[in-house]
Design a protein around this nucleic acid. Structure first.
Lengths: 257, 257
DNA sequence: ACTTGTGAAGTCTTTCACAGCC
DNA sequence: GGCTGTGAAAGACTTCACAAGT
């Protein structure tokens, strides 16, 4: 796992499954909406619907946190909001630094969802000297030369990388050296980090490619009869006679030079 | 053999596991980089390292596509690039429409990774009449009133939603009505769509919250040298005052009225 | 000698279904 | 009547380890 994943082996620490952790924010959002409408309690069925999951899964998820519901009644909204927030660490303030203030970096700096929940954009950093001082979302951009100082002065432990791919690894190294231990990476690169540093990746083009895969399936199914396939751009050629065995779409065999 | 029949694996992706599909773009990116450096062949070990996964997983993934390697040698880079591209449906052109041209929408419109592989930003749509006609990333923004026409005229089947959350479901409905069958949703909302429509979600604040969870745990580990509590599992301590039995941190202030 | 491809084993996640409580 | 909490079963995914091929 070159992505610097944090593997916590056998020793059963009080482990909440990763899949559950990934859904807690979803529940929290749904609960917050209910809270704003002053709904006092909610059943697993209702909450699950609002969060877009099924209710058995939700109940199982909550069971890892403790017994926070009341049989026959449901869950107390405010109480759950607090418990999940605490579990996620959102009862404290997390200063975040965004590195790479291009289109995407600026969009993130302006994104309301950040500030709304424990996260505070503490610094914007860019390598372009021309940007230094320019305020983006009301926060002045600082130069990358000062990255170290900025990170430690602000006590930043979560960094967001929105640089071009070529710069991402280097920025990552510097962030880690300065004390950052969690990174959200928007650059389409595989980052390598030392043990103990978490990386999460958001990759727009990967998401689109996954959609395209399913989209293609749908189209193929529809016209399952004819239409053997539009001849795409020059397919590479494969060598010699041999044991190719693609599941269906085998192709004219040719080999690259 | 297994006891059960093969039921639909939720997202029917005939044969190829969803987890594998999600990694194909990663492999493709690594392969493209190799291709650009004119590397002719690559072993599962090398390619796995470049993609940030382990080699057994990669080989298993490829085995779902067919036997595209050569034992004792490795994989032919160009050939694999083609096969994966075809599998993902990237040998054809996918016109994409982005709805909601705020900061994020504009960032996406400018994002090079889109165009680079089969995806073409065919239309930008926004509800603000003041934006109509303004070019963003060289493409004029069109008004949401014409959404229907724009989608069908351009043959768009993939839509990207970057509107504020309040507008997302409505936009989604209109996209679906106009013929879109795959949606990439950046709005922090659970979209409901009819069967046959795929939705993928990218949620920035969720990613941050997951990082915060792990970050918090790291901090706690450091400090609490002694194990966090007497008993991590749930012992039948349910007596005492009331029936709450959270793992450790019991309530502070935020209880309901 | 070297690397792929894959059954089998292991682990993680989801779902079922019902006991227990309101 | 209601609903939660949870063992147990089912299923999906990963990893192991080695036979088979070049």
């Amino acid at each position: 796992m070159a992505t610097g994943r944090n593997h916590r082996p056998a020793t059963r620490s009080r482990g909440i499954p990763e899949a559950t952790v990934a859904r807690l924010p979803l529940y929290l959002r749904a609960l917050t909406a209910l809270s704003e409408r002053s709904v006092p309690t909610v059943s697993s069925e209702e909450l699950a619907a609002a969060a877009g999951v099924n209710s058995a899964k939700l109940r199982k998820d909550f069971s890892y946190l403790g017994s926070y519901g009341t049989r026959g009644v449901g869950y107390d909204v405010e109480y759950l909001v607090y418990q999940i927030s605490r579990e996620l660490g959102l009862t404290q303030d997390w200063p975040v630094a965004i590195v790479g203030i291009g289109n995407l970096g600026a969009a993130l700096a302006n994104y309301g969802g950040f500030a709304s929940r424990g996260f505070r954009v503490a610094a914007l950093i860019d390598a372009d000297p021309a940007m230094a001082g320019t305020p983006v979302a009301g926060i002045p951009v600082q130069h990358a030369d000062d990255l170290d100082r900025i990170i430690s002065e602000n006590g930043v432990s979560i960094g967001v990388i929105t640089t071009p791919p070529g710069a991402a690894q280097q920025v990552c190294d510097r962030l880690v050296a300065a004390g950052v231990t969690s990174i959200l990476n928007f650059a389409p690169t595989v980052l390598s980090v030392p043990d103990g540093v978490d990386v999460r990746k958001v990759d727009l083009s990967i998401e689109l490619q996954i959609l395209a895969f399913h989209e293609q399936r749908k189209a193929g199914e529809e016209a399952a009869s004819a239409d053997s396939g539009p001849d795409p751009a020059a397919p590479p050629v494969r060598a010699a006679t041999s044991s190719r065995k693609g599941p269906d779409g085998d192709m004219p065999a040719v080999m690259p030079a």
